[in-house]
Nucleic acid binder design. Structure first.
Lengths: 331, 331
DNA sequence: TTGAAAGCGGTACCAC
DNA sequence: GTGGTACCGCTTTCAA
């Protein structure tokens, strides 16, 4: 059942049917009603490909993230999908993995799908160089590109990010006020976000005239056991508090504390990041920074819709984080 | 830059260009090389819409799940996406929510996108009636439909599911052997999977001649705090072990135990489901059933590719679960 | 307000 | 092997 069939049955031309489908104002109410009725009766759905061909768009946006199995990204994708659909946009999902070359490929692949916009989830797309990767720059000159929780200098890539620097700065300061002398900083990546967090830690120590001990900045993959074991391998390292860039890392640290018989929070304070379900599943429950993904995603969608509507939108937006305190920072 | 431009530059017809693009065998190596070179130089990409129009397919599969923010579904979607892409298929994602009407709408919407196949993630699509919903039946007569971890009787809907019945039956039996007298069954839904789990529990008790106490079958949303609080509201209920259909519920039970001062596993044993990160984040670490999502997804993809290749595939496939024992069942 | 017809960018059948 | 051409189903301009 195509537009010709409907036109024939309704006794009008395909142009008129098209107008009705697209809700054009210049169709008389009468003919509109007739066409609508015929469409209804025959359960007609316009062919999306033909539509795409004519319009040059299928109303879809590409979402690329390293891995949806990660809770943070899953939350972001969930929110984005739900709301984009509300605006009539489909979501094509690509999980790119964390590998540099795979990331480039994913973006290049998805670009070929004639998406109306691209949303990159995760600051991993802002690599260590601080420069905008060429593959992102290329696509940004064609369609709106958004980066969720990352910063890329190119003005055409719209960035929405959490103020991770300030969040960690504040936490560090709070620990210092609580007389903590050796704060361990646990991170799992070199992403933009992770680097900002580290900077917050370093700057705060500096501001308080405290010399940074390089041993207190450690990396591990975001896995509870891996983190615990990594710490155990360095068990001669002493620390009285932990700031982790992911809840998984923080809990790994708590497991380690349990292994060596240190009590949390009495002897070691721990702070995680993302305020995931993990943070309330453990005991004692973990204080964790709420990085407010939904807010970031909402801002991105608002800006995107503004852009697609032909209006300007803020290019770089910063959102304040919020530390949710629980028992691991009970001091 | 379209196929006409390439044809002109290469000095051939569009038919030949099309053949090269589609890797047809009947093109001489020489002309093929010329065309390929021109395409390369101009960075030519065939228009997906035109291609879709001609072929009636854009090589995409629809993935519908209630909510990707859920760890189980996120894992499934992640696996499906990665592997479908390996076969050259795009994924269009729809999060339908758990609402019956929303589910129907999501499926109807996605059908219009001319997807080549539909994958439903989560046994929530197999509703309590046990019958195949009409909207699923309709689409199943057009394209391959897969249900991950659910059972629908219609032979055209391909089901891949975990043997949740047996898993819970076995666990229940094990608890009985450990002299547990009052096993609490905690569930969060009426999905097919949840019903099979309950059946495993009930049948096992029956097989051992134990009368079921209706009070010991409880429902709660899959949230740690909600579950804890629900149990606290019924704190006069006594039980010595818990089987939960989700890790979140299980941990809620552990939190409750902590509140009322019961020790796990000494006084209460707890078993969760899905073997998520939550299970190792808590302490003591939670024994949990590995429902083997990846295996289910792999089987679905294998069958799907078989079907799309014109070959038959098994319609209903059952996968054995595996209980991962940790400290909460240390008896 | 309506219709005719020219694209949109491919695929694939049919000749040669 | 290669080229010509009739679709695929819709949008949109131009006339009427």
């Amino acid at each position: 059942m195509n537009i010709y069939d409907i036109a024939k049955l309704a006794g009008v031309s395909i142009a008129t049917v098209s107008r009705v489908v697209n809700d054009s104002p210049k169709v008389s109410e009468k003919t509109k009603a007739v066409v609508l009725k015929v469409m209804e009766e025959n359960n007609y759905t316009p062919n999306v490909f033909a539509r795409g061909l004519g319009l040059g768009s299928m109303k879809s946006v590409g979402i690329v993230c390293p891995d949806v199995a990660d809770a943070y990204m899953a939350k972001a994708v969930s929110y984005l999908e739900k709301n984009l659909r509300g605006y009539g946009y489909d979501c094509i999902l690509y999980c790119s993995s964390y590998d540099e070359e795979d990331k480039r490929q994913a973006v290049e692949m998805i670009l070929k799908k004639q998406i109306d916009a691209l949303i990159l989830v995760g600051s991993i797309y802002a690599n260590i160089s601080g420069k905008t990767p060429d593959y992102i720059r290329d696509i940004a000159s064609d369609i709106p590109v958004f980066l969720i929780n990352g910063y890329l200098p190119d003005p055409r890539v719209n960035c929405v990010l959490a103020d991770d620097f300030q969040a960690v700065y504040d936490i560090t300061e709070e620990l210092l006020f609580a007389e903590k002398k050796r704060i361990l900083f646990l991170s799992n990546s070199q992403s933009y976000s992770a680097r900002r967090k580290l900077q917050g830690y370093l700057d705060c120590l500096k501001a308080h005239g405290i010399e940074t001990d390089g041993d207190l900045v450690l990396y591990s993959e975001n896995s509870i056991y891996a983190t615990r074991d990594m710490l155990f391998r360095r068990r001669n390292l002493s620390f009285d508090s932990v700031i982790a860039t992911e809840d998984g890392l923080a809990i790994g640290a708590m497991k380690y504390a349990a292994v060596i018989g240190m009590r949390v929070p009495e002897e070691i304070n721990v702070i995680g990041y993302n305020n995931s379900e993990l943070a309330i599943g453990c005991s004692p429950e973990l204080s964790s920074v709420d990085s407010r993904v939904e807010v970031l995603c909402k801002m991105a969608i608002d800006s995107l819709m503004s852009l697609l509507g032909g209006n300007p939108a803020p290019q770089k937006q910063l959102v304040k984080c919020h530390l949710v305190k629980r028992l691991t920072t009970d001091f």
